[in-house]
Nucleic acid binder design. Structure first.
Length: 586
RNA sequence: CGGGGUGUGGCGCAGCUUGGUAGCGCACUCGCUUUGGGAGCGAGGGGCCGCAGGUUCAAAUCCUGUCACCCCGACCA
């Protein structure tokens, strides 16, 4: 394949587009790979589409290699299957819904679990047919509240989604492992660094779930990692539980007047002023903060919940939501306080809490709040706190909850060292759906004993368009894009400089030789463009190998250059094609 | 959905405060010169000033409304 710059549908931009902030977005626009067509929707231009297809090809090859079979569904689907699974309503505003001319409801699929499940139900009815792995590479639609960051968060994007169908849990484990291995192979080929973090399966239901995150500051996912190799989604981090502390010699709890201390800061300040300790000052970590929220259960009932945690930490809303799923968390309003007089805003304490207390309000604490820990906390009266309240002696929570924020430096659950907070781009997600969809859509097969059993499923996604952005993010430099060989829009970028017709003849001959050898060549044959522009464009476009044919030709050489390292060497013209082929295949 | 910002030619921007019918750089076209790191000179083409109302003799500019887009947050298998 020969791409001539003189006729290529391409216009590079000298300046950064004003609304592009992150490197992949900025450079893909500037280098003429994509153009914005809508909020959250981009057009692939010829160079960009070549890169996109390479990424897609790699994903497809690895899926085929593992033995998955490709199918293709419509993106425009009727309401009924999603009604049956409950997602017509459960998916919320992020699903595009529309009506046809007869007024029937349709949707633009955000994901295809229902359709895959129904397809298998349609065709298969025996355990002998399983396991089955099928996938598609499809445009997905999500009405994102805020598309952003170029290709990273789109409203219309391409995803490879695959699904596994097994009779038994052990089969699901094997299917999951096979996908995990295929993803590792895929991202390795794409040249993308990743960490595999355990994740909560959230609204999808199911059990085991892991995300492949490409560590990058522009990513939207926060995860934690330790030097010892632990990595997890913040929602999935388990707090190491300290041993109980002996408290036989602990002083008795005592209530003190603490006027005007509705916040941890004011409480700590007052404690240090009026109740100073000899050994060390009071700090937020000595206080037990009791945060009240309102849970809304799926069937609509509302339940107050109090979360107790050390005062130097806040509740992490995502971690809390993940713990109470499928209930959702709402703020506790003034009206709610009025309806629950046992809760004194700013002075809530354990004595008024717990399912067995008079209020009956569920009270869950951070795992660090173990028996024997001693706290300064609310006394359930305005302007009063209780000191030396000992967990296990003076109060017993209803249980623990992983809702406190994770802080850098917290210990990793597996003892592998302190945690660091990092950001990542979610490039893949695998999880065990279990029987959620098979139950909802009644996918059953006959097992070895002639008994009907519900099939267990796994679901596995790779964001193909997002992966293009992730590769660009991870490989670019100051001058421009810098593609790994397998995804580059071309194998070689030949730059012809000067005005000597002999240069263009030699460059074209070289280009044709390389094309004949099966390579894709991007040939800058523009006659009236200055060398500076051609070099700058070549660096922007980011083909890994750049060959310059120009003034060296008089000495019988062309220059071979590595885009990434900038290493250069002269090659005799006669051997150029062979040497370049070697260099590329190496 | 909350907060902030921006809409003027393909891209980046000025003009708006103080109304007088649009300008600069890049890109594009033609000619001549130039050709190893974003060339020079000359001549050109291209803009419903996001949209709709209003004020005014006159609106890119003032007023009202509306739409779109970007950023932060919320949200997000």
């Amino acid at each position: 394949m020969l791409l001539r710059m003189s006729t290529l549908f391409l216009r590079t931009l000298r300046e950064d587009p004003a609304d592009a902030e992150i490197p992949s977005h900025r450079l893909l626009l500037r280098a003429g790979y994509i153009r914005r067509a809508a909020s959250g929707g981009y057009t692939w231009l010829p160079l960009g589409y070549r890169v996109y297809r390479n990424v897609e090809r790699i994903v497809r090859e690895e899926m085929d290699r593992m033995g998955a079979q490709e199918v293709h569904f419509p993106a425009l689907l009727p309401r009924e299957p999603y009604e049956a699974s409950g997602r017509w309503t459960a998916y919320g505003d992020n699903m595009f819904r529309l009506k046809d001319r007869r007024g029937s409801d349709h949707l633009l699929a955000p994901t295809h679990e229902e359709m895959f499940t129904l397809l298998v139900k349609d065709l298969y009815s025996s355990y002998k047919d399983l396991p089955l792995w099928i996938y598609q590479i499809q445009t997905k639609f999500r009405d994102e509240a805020r598309p952003r960051a170029g290709l990273l968060r789109l409203r219309e994007f391409v995803m490879k989604d695959s699904y596994s169908f097994d009779t038994h849990d052990s089969g699901l484990d094997a299917s999951y492992a096979a996908h995990r291995a295929a993803y590792i192979a895929t991202f390795d080929r794409l040249g993308l660094d990743y960490v595999i973090v355990s994740a909560m399966s959230g609204a999808m239901g199911g059990s085991r779930s892991e995300e492949f995150l490409h560590p990058n500051q522009v990513g939207e996912d926060t995860f934690v990692r330790s030097a010892g190799g632990y990595a997890a989604n913040v929602e999935a981090v388990r707090t190491p539980v300290p041993d109980p502390i002996p408290h036989d010699d602990a002083p008795a709890a005592h209530v003190e007047d603490t006027p005007d201390t509705p916040t941890i800061d004011t409480l700590v300040a007052l404690a240090n002023e009026r109740f100073a300790r000899s050994d060390r000052p009071w700090s937020a970590a000595d206080t037990l903060k009791n945060v009240v929220v309102m849970l809304v259960h799926p069937e609509g009932s509302r339940e107050p919940l109090v979360v107790g945690l050390p005062g130097d930490r806040d509740v992490d809303p995502k971690r809390l939501e993940a713990q109470v799923d499928p209930a959702v968390v709402e703020a506790f309003t003034e009206a709610d306080f009025a309806a629950n007089p046992a809760l004194v805003k700013g002075y809530i304490g354990p004595a008024a809490l717990g399912e067995k207390s008079s209020s009956g309000i569920r009270y869950l604490v951070d795992p660090r709040v173990v028996a024997g820990t001693r706290w300064l906390t609310g006394a359930n009266q305005a302007g009063r706190h209780v000191f030396d309240l000992v967990c296990g002696r003076d109060f017993t929570p209803d249980g623990t909850i992983e809702a406190a924020e994770i802080k850098a430096g917290d210990p990793a659950p597996d003892g592998s060292g302190p945690l660091l907070l990092a950001r990542g781009i979610e490039i893949g997600h695998i999880f065990q759906l279990g029987r959620k969809y098979a139950d909802a859509l009644d996918l059953k097969v006959l097992d070895e004993n002639g008994k009907l059993v519900t099939v267990t499923m796994g679901s596995y996604g790779i964001g193909v368009s997002r992966a293009v952005a992730a590769v660009a993010e991870s490989t670019h430099d100051e001058a421009g894009l810098c593609w790994p060989r397998e995804v580059s829009p071309a194998d070689v970028h030949i730059v012809a400089t000067g005005k000597d017709p002999a240069v263009f003849e030699a460059a074209q001959r070289l280009a044709i030789d390389l094309v004949d050898a099966g390579l894709t060549v991007l040939y800058d044959d523009r006659r009236k463009v200055s060398p500076g522009i051609k070099f700058t464009d070549a660096e922007l476009i980011g083909v890994p190998t750049i060959v310059t044919v120009g003034r060296g030709l008089a000495d019988g050489v062309v220059e071979l250059r590595d885009r990434r390292t900038d290493a250069r060497r002269d090659l005799p013209v006669a051997e150029a094609a062979a040497t370049i082929r070697q260099a590329i295949q190496a």
